[in-house]
Design a protein around this nucleic acid. Structure first.
Length: 487
RNA sequence: GGUCCUGUGGCCGAGCGGCUAGGCAGAGCUCUGCAAAAGCUUCCACAGCGGUUCGAAUCCGCUCGGGACCUCCA
């Protein structure tokens, strides 16, 4: 079996993947902060890791995939002095913080399900692990790498950096970081300018707070991931992932915390997904250029001419490698939608193919190429290019311009099952149910009437029916085998 | 200011020393009552200038763009 290569941010190169304890595999991905609707950029990250998760499963690994829900501790504004995002939203909406959390967690899961991403094995929350976070903070203090001041616990970055490489993930020099860190207000309690909070003293008006050895407060943002990854995956596990924007601060601090806590760097492979851009600029909440998934599905957005189905969007995302920026536009989406439709239509054609005695195509080579693409750091764009070769084979055979043996047809079916449905997580978007059954009947009737007109050479009538169906978004195709329709 | 990424045809995007990426759009042909679909063929590239090399989109240098991170965001 071909080896799997993964780009590791730690080494800035592709490395052969070796699981610590195969076939078991632990993967942690930083999840969303549930204080507002997920925007499309988050979705891209989670879809990328969904493909990675699915491919690892396909390869036979027993993956424990942990993706947290940040429901406390993530601050608004400047480090350590801003307001907790969820508390703030709760105040604005006059709701309990946990009502905010519930609302957006449910919304997030709904959207993820629409995109057909598999749920993680464990989806732990920060508020559910306050004790664990305090325990880690205590141990880091005990180990001499954190200190308490006025009810807030800070991580001592400069002390840590004396014996450890604090900037493994970014390759920056500590001195430069120290020089360039902006002066922030209200942080006179810190010893070093790079120090970050493990535990933050709560002001009286703060809504989400818990008792601790240092007084009433709430956890810092970074420590939740250290606590939950350690709890569910152990002190060392295989893969840690997240968006690239988390690399320099969140993940850097997470590694420092873990090492300060137990002397071990948490993950062997750090994977970072690139950003979604709009007109070349990062799509982000703060820039106000973000898209909500629902706006995309309905087409209710100034930059869109129409709505796009979740599967078309998923396909669109996969046409770009996860480490490249993906520029988002109506035109690009439209192109992907058509390509996606061809991919699925071709699968339907495959089900009707008749086998020949001899084959003119090398389907085995194609399958190898598909694996080769995915083994090369999950290269979905190349995988898709290969799948379009499969489409060509299927359509050619359907047109009797080439031939496939039954074995080839079976293998093509297997390729579709493995790569299109299992790994890429695409699915046919055909509604089933009563409404659809009724529509089937109506369409059969309409097409019969049209066929009669055609037989009578009454093309005016047959074209009229077709045009009106087209206007109703029903496409009619006359093939040699008869007339087909699709929505 | 620092760290890093990036510049590929009308658009989106792979490739990262020699071998057609792919998709969408465009053109032609085949099929067809006409369409559509499908198939085949085809047009359109590697920001610029130098260098290394038998050979560079791919490596190196410079120039000019674009972006990310260093403050909240996946």
């Amino acid at each position: 079996m071909e080896k799997l290569y993964i780009y590791n941010t730690l080494s800035r190169s592709k490395e052969e993947f070796k699981a610590i304890n195969a076939p078991f595999l632990g993967m942690y991905v930083c999840g969303p902060t549930v204080y507002s609707d997920v925007h499309l950029g988050n979705c891209r990250t989670f879809m990328s890791f969904d493909i990675i998760y699915r491919y690892l499963l396909h390869l036979g690994y027993k993956v424990r995939y942990v993706r947290n829900i940040t429901d406390a501790g993530h601050l608004e504004g400047d480090a350590d002095v801003g307001e907790d995002k969820i508390s703030k939203k709760a105040k604005l909406s006059q709701l309990e913080p946990m009502e905010i959390v519930q609302q957006y967690t449910v919304g997030f899961r709904d959207i993820m399900a629409m995109f057909n991403t598999l749920p993680p094995s464990i989806e732990p929350t920060a508020t559910g692990h306050i004790i664990e976070q305090q325990e880690i903070a205590k141990q880091i203090i005990k180990n001499g790498l954190a200190y308490e001041h006025n009810g807030t616990v800070y991580f001592d970055v400069e002390k840590f950096a004396k014996t450890n490489n604090y900037t493994v993930l970014t390759n920056r020099k500590l001195e430069e970081l120290l020089e360039n860190t902006r002066d922030l207000d209200g942080q006179e309690d810190k010893k070093g300018r790079l120090d970050f909070a493990l535990w933050i003293k709560a002001k009286p008006e703060h809504l989400m707070k818990w008792p601790s050895p240092w007084g009433v407060g709430f956890p810092g943002w970074h420590i939740e991931c250290s606590a939950m990854s350690t709890k569910y995956l152990g002190e060392q596990f295989d893969i840690h992932g997240g968006g690239m924007d988390l690399q320099a601060t969140h993940h850097t601090n997470e590694i420092a915390q873990n090492i300060a806590y137990c002397g071990k760097s948490p993950a062997n492979y750090w994977m970072h997904t690139n950003m979604l851009t709009v007109n070349g600029q990062k799509m982000s909440k703060s820039l106000g250029n973000s898209f909500l998934p629902m706006e995309l599905f309905t087409g209710n957005h100034p930059l869109l001419t129409k709505g796009f189905s979740p599967m078309a969007v998923r396909f669109f995302m996969m046409q770009t490698h996860y480490r490249s920026t993906l520029d988002f536009s109506n035109e690009a989406l439209t192109a992907s939608e058509k390509a996606y439709t061809r991919l699925i239509d071709s699968y339907k054609t495959l089900q009707t193919l008749k086998a020949s005695d001899a084959s003119t195509e090398n389907v085995h080579a194609l399958e190898r190429e598909c694996y080769h693409a995915m083994n090369d750091d999950f290269n979905t764009p190349v995988l898709i290019a290969n799948l379009f070769d499969a489409i060509r084979m299927i359509n050619s055979a359907n047109d009797k311009k080439s031939s496939l043996t039954q074995e080839d047809i079976d293998l093509l079916n297997k390729i579709y099952q493995h790569f299109v449905f299992d790994v890429m997580g695409l699915k046919k978007e055909e509604e089933t149910g009563k409404a659809n059954t009724a529509l089937e009947g109506v369409m059969q009737l309409v097409l019969e009437l049209r066929d009669k007109a055609k037989v009578n050479k009454d093309f005016a009538t047959s074209d009229d029916i077709r045009n009106k169906l087209t206007a109703a978004h029903i496409q009619v195709k006359d093939t040699k085998e008869g007339t087909t329709w699709s929505i």
